[in-house]
Design a binder for these strands. Structure first.
Lengths: 245, 245
DNA sequence: CGTACAATTGAGAATCCTCAAGAGCAGTGG
DNA sequence: CCACTGCTCTTGAGGATTCTCAATTGTACG
């Protein structure tokens, strides 16, 4: 079944409630499905697109995970976010038709390709789709604001704890365990995303482990004391962890 | 004339090329103008809306400037951005219909109120308007990504220099001087926005002054050596200063 | 002129980074 | 089966940047 994931269309996709079809009528979802192009799997470390590429499509994650980042003139990267199944990539190209960041697969992954021109036409026909597009864009913006808060006003420990909580939340909304999961990204990616060094991230993991809050074994994470982990970032409002697109 | 700025409608507004009407036909702009509500001036330190408020409108800055920020449970603030004339506020409410940040006026300012329901209807009728909405949303997202880069990977000096450059750019696009302007925000706002303390911001201003790059006198800024200022943030790609919504 | 607020400047402290070495794990080939 | 290589992650010590605390100066406004 998993090997046929790239053949599943919107009406049958278990992610449809998280993705663009949310809130649409059944026949509208079918309409949407007609413009979706399936792509071959994206392999680990393969780029989906590069900063500066012409962006004529949006991409929805069907399986796996991705990392988005901006490169500067010196080749330094800033990781902007991580994308999990059901999430939409490429929204930054809406401005000028060029991607302002690059996207790379963290593992073997599947995406659905949505041509912007067709999507725009469909938005005019299906009000619910236009609304959902706006909701998704609003979510991206709200999530980016949370990241700005994270980078601007949080200590290293708070950043790492927040990172884990946000992954926990998103895995939960996908129907996976919120307390046990495997990180698909390297420490380097986490550090870069959080504006820290990998040594600092590693030390924070170690500290949280020593306090019994989490158990870390390479990429595998187990949250033993969710309350403590949340208390670590208590300065945040309870519902302000929608975080990290 | 300035006192009548709140009576100027879209077809006559000198900001129309920066704002929603960009790219629209003349009659379409008139249509848009019919849904715009003029509001009384917003005074310094007056809130346009508060985090958590129901958001049924977007707001375009007609004159003056605003600061947006997120508050956490302890009352700490993170400034998310500054808004100048022609820019659209309230996009974060598109997700759930609630504002995720608060907006406060930095000086006496005018805004145009755009009811989302009417705007949505109009978007379905006017393809150009829908496109412009998506462009604006894409710009907001790209700009937020730049802020994440700024907070995640830049030194204090780079942050302050970047802040000045971005203001310079935006004033220039409004037709004002790119080398001489007055800051409408306090040091505290700048520091908070940049993830620094006001002391650090002040010291960076002093250093840039001592190097002859800028002249600072309270809120008044003069850029004497634009090349040096840009060199301070050279790690960035030349066109990556679209910055800071 | 005095108060309140904003901004600057200085000294010491804390956090995080840099540099360096070592440990753990996967894949390769003898 | 085991050593070897490459990569990732961890751990430690010292250093740099930025923050905290405190005092002073400057500016706006009644």
């Amino acid at each position: 079944m998993e090997s046929n994931v790239h053949k599943i269309s919107c009406p049958d996709c278990r992610l449809s409630d998280l993705c663009l079809p949310y809130g649409l009528q059944q026949n509208e979802v079918k309409q949407l499905a007609t413009i979706v192009k399936n792509k071959r799997p994206t392999q680990t470390d393969e780029y989906l697109y590069l900063q500066g590429d012409a962006g004529q499509n949006l991409y929805a994650v069907k399986s796996g995970s991705f990392r988005s980042f901006i490169s500067d003139a010196n080749g330094n990267e800033q990781t902007i976010g991580f994308y999990l199944p059901g999430e939409l990539m490429g929204l930054d190209a809406l401005q000028h038709g060029f991607f302002t960041c690059s996207i790379v697969a963290l593992e073997t992954s599947m995406v659905c390709e949505l041509p912007l021109s067709r999507l725009n036409e469909l938005c005019a026909e299906i009000p619910g789709l236009q609304n959902q597009m706006l909701r998704i864009l609003g979510k991206e913006i709200a999530s980016d604001h949370d990241k700005i808060l994270l980078l601007g006003h949080r200590s290293a420990k708070e950043r790492v704890a927040t990172f884990l909580l946000m992954l926990s939340r998103r895995y939960a909304s996908l129907g996976f365990s919120s307390t046990e999961f495997n990180l698909s990204m390297r420490r380097q990616d986490i550090a870069n995303f959080l504006g820290l060094t990998i040594e600092t991230v590693s030390r924070q993991f170690t500290e949280l482990s020593k306090d019994g809050v989490i158990t870390v074994k390479q990429r595998s994470i187990q949250i033993n004391d969710m309350a403590s982990l949340k208390a670590t970032v208590k300065p945040c409002l309870p519902d302000q962890l929608s975080f990290i697109a």
